[in-house]
Amino acid sequence: MKRSPLDAVHRELGAKMVPFGGWEMPLEYTGTIDEHLVCRNGSVVFDVSHLGTMRVSGPQAFDALQAALSNDLGKVAPGKAQYTHLLDDADGSVLDDIIVWWHPDDEQTFDVMPNASNTERVVDAIGGIDVTETRAVLAVQGPEANQRVADIWPEAGAVGRFRVIRCDWNGTSCLVAGTGYTGEPGLEIAVPVDAAADLWRAITDAGVRPAGLGARDTLRLEAGLPLHGNELGPGITPLQAGLGWVVGWDKPTFRGKQALEQERERGVSRALVGISTEGRRPPRAASAVLVGDDVVGAVTSGNYSPVLEHGVAMAYVRPDLAVDSEVEIDVRGKRLAGRVVDMPFVR
Rank of each mutant, 00 (worst) to 15 (best):
3 R>L: 14
9 V>A: 15
11 R>H: 09
20 F>G: 04
27 L>N: 06
29 Y>D: 09
35 E>M: 11
35 E>C: 10
35 E>V: 13
37 L>F: 04
41 N>R: 14
47 D>K: 07
49 S>H: 05
50 H>P: 01
58 G>F: 04
61 A>N: 08
65 L>S: 13
66 Q>Y: 08
69 L>C: 11
74 G>L: 05
76 V>Q: 14
79 G>S: 10
80 K>I: 09
87 L>I: 07
94 V>E: 11
98 I>R: 06
100 V>G: 04
107 E>F: 06
108 Q>F: 05
115 N>D: 04
119 T>H: 05
122 V>L: 11
123 V>F: 04
124 D>F: 03
131 V>F: 03
131 V>W: 03
136 A>R: 03
143 P>Q: 01
146 N>G: 14
150 A>Q: 01
160 G>L: 12
166 R>T: 15
176 V>T: 10
177 A>E: 09
178 G>D: 02
179 T>I: 13
180 G>D: 03
183 G>P: 04
186 G>E: 01
189 I>E: 02
189 I>D: 01
196 A>Y: 04
203 I>A: 01
204 T>R: 00
213 L>K: 05
229 G>T: 01
234 P>V: 12
236 I>V: 15
252 P>T: 09
254 F>G: 05
262 Q>G: 03
264 R>F: 05
266 R>H: 08
268 V>K: 02
270 R>F: 00
276 S>R: 13
284 R>S: 15
285 A>N: 09
286 A>D: 13
291 V>T: 13
291 V>K: 03
292 G>Q: 03
299 V>K: 01
301 S>A: 10
301 S>L: 02
302 G>V: 08
306 P>F: 04
311 G>A: 11
313 A>T: 05
319 P>V: 01
320 D>N: 15
333 G>W: 02
334 K>C: 05
336 L>N: 00
340 V>H: 00
343 M>Q: 08
